[in-house]
Computed example of a mutant assay.
Amino acid sequence: MTELIHCDSDALAPIDTQQLLQPVSDDSPIKILILYGSLRTRSFSRLLAQECARLLSFFGAEVRIYNPSGLPLPDDCEDTHPKVSELRELAQWCDGMVWCSPERHGAMTGIMKAQIDWIPLSIGAVRPTQGKTLALMQVSGGSQSFNAVNQMRILGRWMRMFTIPNQSSVAKAWLEFDDNDRMKSSAYYNRVVDVIEELVKFTLLLRNKNDILVDRYSERVESAEALRKRVSERS
């Protein structure tokens, strides 16, 4: 066996393939949180979020859509604000998320970013986003663009989420919804179905395996060192 001279023997162990590949016997509905990034009366990101919710319900998921109206700017109030508490509780509740933002000035909206910024990397000992799945969508008023979804993909990785490969960008969104605020049949709608279907599949595969999938050697090294330090202090 090759000698790994820089590895901590207390933290390094073979990967438990049996645990990793063991099927999960859990037939409860997956839980998906949807965030959207506009407060307009007729918000196309909200309408797209609602279409996603319908599809998720069809696939058997339990869905919550967070309404960002009334959410303060990050750090402009205590994190005990009701809208902040609601958002953080939903982030802990869900197995995965859908983020749907308009593109404004070539980027996601401030409303979208504020929601993400209010979700911390950790709440006490709990990491509310780590190991959860994420699907990304955007709507544009003009030609098709991927600026917002590309930005959100970076954030999803930073939040330690499993961001699925597929994504959706709906161009000229004002043409894609009918008078009943339902999305019309189109290639854009088909892509939305693709994304939601893929999100459900990934979430089913990954849920209840977060502990082993996000278990990191570097963090085990820190834990082992902390344990050795405590033992040394007691002796």
Results as ranks from 00 to 15, higher is better:
I32F: 07
V139W: 07
K83D: 13
R228F: 07
D26S: 05
S232P: 03
P120K: 02
G141S: 09
S232G: 13
W93A: 02
I34E: 10
H105K: 15
S85Q: 10
I164K: 08
E222W: 12
R153H: 07
S122M: 06
L87V: 05
L134A: 12
C94P: 01
W118F: 03
R64H: 00
L73F: 03
M112P: 09
R191I: 15
L56K: 12
D95N: 12
T129V: 07
R157W: 11
R64G: 00
K201A: 11
G60H: 06
R88D: 04
N150D: 07
K31Q: 04
I65G: 05
Q151E: 14
A187S: 15
T163P: 11
K132S: 01
S45C: 12
N190R: 13
S25D: 08
D117P: 11
S223V: 06
V139Y: 06
K201M: 05
M137L: 15
S43P: 06
V139C: 10
N208E: 03
V24R: 05
I15F: 04
P72I: 03
W158V: 05
R230V: 03
Q50M: 15
G96L: 12
R220V: 00
M183N: 13
A125R: 10
I123Y: 00
E86D: 06
K229I: 01
M183E: 13
N180K: 06
M161H: 11
Y36F: 12
Y66K: 07
A135I: 13
V193M: 10
K132P: 00
F44H: 10
R127T: 06
F59S: 08
L204S: 00
S235M: 14
M1G: 11
M137Y: 04
I111L: 12
L121K: 13
A91W: 01
L121G: 13
G141L: 05
M97L: 03
R234D: 12
I196W: 09
T2R: 10
D211F: 01
A187L: 15
Q18E: 13
A224H: 08
V139D: 10
G142P: 02
W174G: 12
V192D: 03
M159T: 00
G60N: 13
